[in-house]
């Protein structure tokens, strides 16, 4: 337990210091690929069409990382670097993980000013609702466990 927490703490500090220095694209490419795999059915069904030629920017504030996502045909794509964001969502890594692992409610974090929306609110809100509606059983068990564990570890070491 203690060892795991120490590793989490070191990893988190390392991330906060190092990640902002790195270019965004490697992580972005991997993340978008993952999204396209996992959400192919929803993409085919048109559930994310509201992102067509829009730019959604997701910022992980403490890690200084920012994902810029758009959609073309039935795929999420990286947004062009020069295009301004239509909608922005920002929070700390802990809070994003708490949402992803189903532990926290995004509106709760929003009321507490821990989750921020900018630009066209409708895009941010629709993304939130679409993600809430995803069937969690489709996330592999190991990934769910990893999410829950990491979320819990980070929540324990990072102040709000």
């Amino acid at each position: 337990m203690l060892v795991r927490r120490s590793i989490a703490r070191i990893g988190y500090r390392f991330g906060c210091n190092l990640l902002p220095l790195l270019p965004n694209w490697p992580g972005e490419v991997v993340f978008i690929k993952l999204l396209n795999q996992r959400l192919s059915e929803e993409l085919q069904d048109g559930l994310f069409d509201f992102l067509d030629s829009k730019v959604l920017e997701v910022s992980v504030t403490d890690l200084g990382v920012c994902l810029r996502i758009s959609k073309r045909d039935a795929y999420f794509v990286r947004a062009p670097t020069d295009a301004p964001a239509d909608s922005t969502i920002s929070a700390s890594i802990c809070d994003f993980l708490a949402i992803a692992s189903g532990k926290e409610d995004p509106d709760t974090l929003f009321f507490q000013r821990r989750l921020c929306l900018g630009g066209q609110t409708e895009i941010g809100l629709t993304v939130k609702n679409r993600l809430d509606a995803l069937d969690r059983s489709r996330i592999p068990q190991w990934a769910q466990r990893w999410l829950e564990m990491t979320a819990a570890e980070l929540a324990a070491i990072v102040p709000n």
Binding site: I99, G102, K103, D105, P106, D107, T108, R136
Partner: peptide, 10 residues
């Protein structure tokens, strides 16, 4: 109804 499954559960 606008809240997430996490809210509903709690």
């Amino acid at each position: 109804r606008q809240r997430s499954p996490a809210y509903v559960a709690q």
